[in-house]
Design a protein around this nucleic acid. Structure first.
Lengths: 216, 216, 216, 216
DNA sequence: CATGAATGAGGTTTCATTCAT
DNA sequence: CATGAATGAAACCTCATTCAT
């Protein structure tokens, strides 16, 4: 006969590390790494402080694990975007940005972005790793799309790096901002027509021959 | 005859608080508030740990003083921008952004931006104060210019908040990024044609009747 | 089967605060509050410095707890004396004084008396509290007995406050003195006939019609 | 021609150590030795902190000097009392106690009494010295008077130590008490008839043949 | 596995002491 | 002489880490 309790406990046990990492992420994002006490992580996860050490060797290991756990899905998401590469540069660029927002910018992974922005200086190897595996590929992907659009004569000529920052900065900053200032600006959600205006202005500025459709 | 030594010491004493605050700012920006040791602040400023307490009551007071010292010039800069308000919305907007970059984004005040982004959660009152005195007015100023442009029929219709983020996020993020990742991305300066492309695309997208000149 | 070790540890944990407070009291009495290092308190209690902070929020909280723990039994003792109130003023007064000496003056609570005498100026609220709950009631009790004796014509007329100091000061000072000068006067115990002479002279001076018995 | 300013300054300079010691005494009595900051001593004396070190080698030296300055007059007072030794034991004892109260107990020397009671443990050599030069002689003096009275058959028989404590404790404790609890019991002055009652009861209890006069 | 009492290294803070002016 | 800015040893206090239960 199968012991249901044991089942639940098993599931509980397997999920532990992820629960702990989630609690840690939330607090690291809120307070920063150094200002977060393991006591608080433990009590937020509903376990005792000692339990953390059953799953992570040290506070720093916990941090790395938290980042690691976020980086893996990020890599997945970026790779998934690369797969979707198609022929219409404008449509592709828009898709990539929407995709990023939906899969990263508006999810809990946004916290990881803030965390890296703030803690990169204290964990250089982590920053380098992240740069190599996530940020670099993602920038390269955007660059490729932008350059392809320019070469095809669909996008106007210009410095692709500059264009990349134009199209991506608003999304990234918005997602980081929401992590940081949730307490003072009231964490209002983005208005529906935010993206409409964004893409409207963006593509009218970017396209050689803007059409109404291409800006939707 | 004037005693030179006494002069030097006097100047030294008067300059002390600012020197200490500068050292503290640099380290707070680099490591974050909690991860910065007062030992390090002191030795970077070339004084002993105890000396800090001659000028600041506590580590937190030092932080507030550091922010305060940055906020005052920021307020000044923002107010100076308000004064320059003129009639040509496109030219004005461009001027404001260039002004911001030259007076804030590319100066040591950029560090304060990063600091607030990272530490706002740990110093809510400071964040609120900053929001009221600097961020809010600055956003309002940009919004007013954008809305005026739209009402005059110079800018195309759209969500002004969205436009504001489009035009400002790249600058802000760039300046924060340079504070954070100086170690891994090598702190390369912005390329000359960065702003050219930025404004070219931006104003072509924004203006109802774009002309070559208006985009310069 | 009962786990003895667990029992011991449990007992240990429950007893900790009292053990720590006892160690602290001893050192506070010996050196004074400010001159006592928490290191010393900890090592006298056989624990590490950090352990103190598991039970008390700060050095000052430790002080308050130490006093608190002494005040409660003092209140109990004073209330117990009030209960014993009977009819023969001379006998009652003698009983009260003997009781005070046996339950307070010659016990470890004497240290608390010295502590308050020395530290009252640094902890005014504690002094006020002690005054309201212990010293005041005790003085009132003595006063009542003395005044009752005078009204009944058993004691000679006079200023009751003055009489109270006459009868109580020698005991209080003796107990404080023994806390203070244990090192230089060798902490000799009080001689057996100390009280005999004390009460003999006291009651002969106090009673309207002194008899041999009444002075025993 | 005599420079008046120089005169005043001279007097000022000569008086400096005494002024500093007075400021120190006041604070040592109020807060205790360890809790008193030299900053406070200096500012109470109206000088800078460094000036203290022109007159005293260290904080401890200051303490010793403060005690020393008090002990010398005490010794003088006690010796003056010894000189007045006369034939009527009751009158003599009363004179000694009144003398002590007027010259020590009710003066600023009372603070020194409190100080020694509280700090004796932290300065054993000072305590020993004080014991040898002041406390011992004073106790011996009282003892001699009491024993003489007993041998002459003027005082009733009993333990002279006990009698000494009876007659002296109320005065000593009263003077210390006024130093300690000035803040909570309002520092009310002793009532006029305090001594009347005190001596009335005391000598009626002490004398073999009490008379009305002898108790005045 | 999980706990939480205990630890002690390391941070912040205080303050007696020094010294150039 | 007098000052007060500067120092650094030593205090208080925190919290990541360990380990007996």
């Amino acid at each position: 006969m199968i012991n249901t309790d044991s089942h639940r406990r098993q599931r509980r046990k397997d999920a532990r590390p992820a629960e702990l990492a989630a609690a840690a992420l939330a607090l690291f994002v809120e307070k920063g790494f150094a200002a977060t006490r393991l006591d608080d992580v433990a009590s937020r996860a509903g376990v005792s402080k000692g339990t953390l050490y059953l799953y992570f060797d040290s506070k720093e290991a916990l941090f790395r694990a938290v980042i690691e756990e976020s980086i893996v899905p990020m890599i997945g998401e970026v790779e998934a975007m690369v797969e979707q590469f198609k022929d219409d540069p404008a449509h592709l660029l828009r898709s990539l940005l929407v995709f990023w927002w939906e899969r990263i910018g508006s999810t809990s992974l946004a916290g990881t972005c803030k965390l890296m922005l703030c803690e990169a200086g204290n964990f250089p190897e982590v920053a380098v790793y992240l740069n190599e595996r996530v940020i670099g590929p993602w920038h390269m992907l955007l660059n490729k799309v932008i350059e392809a659009g320019m070469q095809k004569g669909v996008f106007r000529q210009g410095n692709p790096e500059s264009v990349r920052q134009m199209v991506f900065s608003p999304l990234l900053l918005q997602s980081v901002w929401q992590c940081s200032l949730h307490m003072c600006s009231g964490a209002r959600p983005m208005p529906d027509n935010y993206f409409d205006t964004f893409f409207d202005v963006l593509f009218r500025g970017l396209l050689v021959e803007p059409t109404e459709e291409s800006q939707r």
